[in-house]
Amino acid sequence: MVAAGSAVADDVLLKRPAADLLGARPLPPGLHPPSSLGDPRMPEVEPQEVERPGRSEQEIVFSLANLGVTYGKSLALTGVTMDIYKHQITAIIGPSGCGKSTLIRCLNRMNDLIPGAAVTGSAFYHGEDLYGPRVDPVVVRRHIGMVFQRPNPFPKSIYDNVAFGPRINGFKGDLDELVERCLRQAALWDEVKNSLRKSALALSGGQQQRLCIARAIAVEPDVILMDEPASALDPISTTKIEDLMQELKEHYSIVIVTHNMQQAARMSDKTAFLYTEVDQGTSERWGILVEYDATGVMFTKPCDKRTEDYISGRFG
């Protein structure tokens, strides 16, 4: 936890103007080569030009210790302790209602928006307490982007959707260029380059979801959280999103919640299995973290009986 803070200044999440904050933030060496074209804050697109010395050292992005969430008086999730690594895809799997979404929403403080939600335990981001007293959740969300289960583009044009984040963050550079780059990164540019001014709602579900990913990376986040990003999409769109995530992990750390175990097995580096515990007396249910390991290990030699039963389909 202490070592994790070394790459990024400890005060990245403090309440300061966004532009200043983004500019002042010392970026990890691999993410932005100094010779980067145009805006120096932008990640380089071509993967072959990117060196990632930090990757093999497995730098920690999130460090969760005994994390729990309560909604009002009911416990939703408890006792989650795990480290999430840089430039990896971390999958969170588990049955419905086991707190997967609750967990991922802790990581960018989206749970703050739900009345009555309270977080216990600790969550550190690059060594800094996400729930510390001086941390502004709005600034947290500028660093940690999110893509939701249902595609949720704004009822604006495709261009304005992607430009939304940069605009509210006071982006001063070439907006057209930024929008094009983000749409290219999200593998959507060729399909929409002639209709940027058309409403985003006219796109198909799969295109809308890729637009939401383009919109999320337009604010140049460090981490992208994905809450079942492909569950509302058909298999072809799902494949596109999965391919896209493999490319995105070159530049971003990705945490994905999924119902689909094959998806987790195919694309993630690490997998966490959450499961529901039931109090026999009150029949209250809450989620716990059962097992967390490299995906290969999880799907071949799981340590816990419950993990084995769940991934092999022998459930309950």
Binding site: R141, G145, F148, N152, F154, F164, I168, N169
Partner: peptide
Amino acid sequence: KDASHALGA
């Protein structure tokens, strides 16, 4: 609203 908040608005 969630989408907007998640973009740091």
